[in-house]
C-alpha cells in the first residue's frame, strides 16, 4: 500500500514565523557588529542577507527596544536634505550580549545536527 505524504504548509509557515520573530534581534546584532548603519540601510541589509519577509516598520520598534535594553545605541546625524539619519551601533554590553548569543546559537545548531545524524 502506498501513501501520499504532503507537507503541512500551514504548520511550516507558523513555525517559520516563530523562527523569524526569535532570530531577528540576533540578525540585527550580527549586522551591527561590523559597522554602524542608519535605519533604512540596516533594513535593506537584513533583506539582502536573509529571506525574511517582515513589514519593514516592525524593525524600528525592535531597534528601539534593543536601545532601551542598552544593547545598541543610536544618534541622529543631520543631512543636507534636512531629514536626518538615525545611526545605530552596538554598545559594549551589546557586544558581550552578542558573544553570548553566538555561543547559544552554535550550541543549538550543533545539538540539532547531532540529533539529525
Amino acid at each position: 500500500m502506498y501513501y501520499l505524504c504532503v507537507m503541512n504548509t500551514e504548520f511550516v509557515q507558523n513555525w517559520f514565523s516563530q523562527v523569524k520573530k526569535g532570530t531577528l534581534s540576533y540578525i540585527i546584532l550580527v549586522i551591527l557588529e561590523r559597522k554602524e548603519y542608519y535605519g533604512y540601510e540596516l533594513v535593506q541589509e537584513i533583506k539582502t542577507h536573509t529571506s525574511l519577509e517582515v513589514a519593514e516598520g516592525t524593525l524600528y520598534p525592535l531597534l528601539n527596544r534593543l536601545k532601551t535594553e542598552g544593547i545598541i545605541n543610536s544618534k541622529w546625524v543631520e543631512q543636507e536634505s534636512g531629514i536626518p539619519r538615525k545611526y545605530y551601533t552596538l554598545t559594549g554590553s551589546g557586544r558581550a550580549t552578542l558573544a553570548e548569543m553566538k555561543g547559544i546559537w552554535l550550541a543549538l545548531a550543533a545539538a540539532i545536527n547531532k540529533i539529525e545524524k
Binding site: G39, Y40, E41, G57, Y60, I83, P84, R85
Partner: peptide, 16 residues
C-alpha cells in the same frame, strides 16, 4: 517625535 522622525527618515531614504 522619535518614532515620527525614524519613519520619516525611512520614507525619505527609500523614495530618494
Amino acid at each position: 517625535r522619535e518614532l515620527l522622525m525614524e519613519l520619516n527618515s525611512h520614507v525619505y531614504e527609500a523614495t530618494h
